[in-house]
Amino acid sequence: MLSWVVTFLIIALIAGVLGFGGIAGASVEIAKAIFFIAVILFLVSAVVGLVRGRSNI
């Protein structure tokens, strides 16, 4: 998922250099949204892992 963030940021950089402001802005917004979704999923999985603990099965 974080590879998508890097991909969209690279697209935004290239589009910004070439003068495509709309595409660059949209790519940055998509990258930010995916990044925050990834962070939230990581935090949720960390909390669930801590709550469940380790089983000795």
Rank of each mutant, 00 (worst) to 15 (best):
F42W: 12
G16F: 06
G16Y: 02
A12H: 00
K32C: 11
T7G: 02
I40D: 03
L43V: 14
G21P: 00
R54Q: 07
R54G: 03
I40A: 15
F36D: 08
L9E: 15
L2V: 08
K32W: 09
G21A: 11
R54T: 05
V6W: 06
L2Q: 10
K32N: 09
L41C: 12
V28C: 02
S45W: 07
I30G: 02
I57F: 10
M1S: 12
A26C: 02
I11H: 04
F42G: 15
N56D: 10
G19V: 02
L2R: 12
V51P: 00
L43F: 14
T7S: 09
V47I: 15
N56V: 06
F8H: 08
A38W: 06
L41Q: 11
I57R: 08
L18N: 02
G19P: 00
A38M: 04
V47S: 02
V39D: 04
G16H: 03
A15W: 02
V51S: 02
F42T: 14
I34V: 15
R52V: 13
I14M: 05
G19M: 03
V47Q: 00
R52P: 00
G22E: 07
L9F: 07
L18S: 04
F42D: 11
A15C: 03
R52W: 06
T7D: 12
E29M: 13
F42I: 14
F42Y: 14
S27Y: 00
I14K: 05
W4T: 13
A46R: 05
V5K: 01
V5L: 02
V28I: 15
F35C: 07
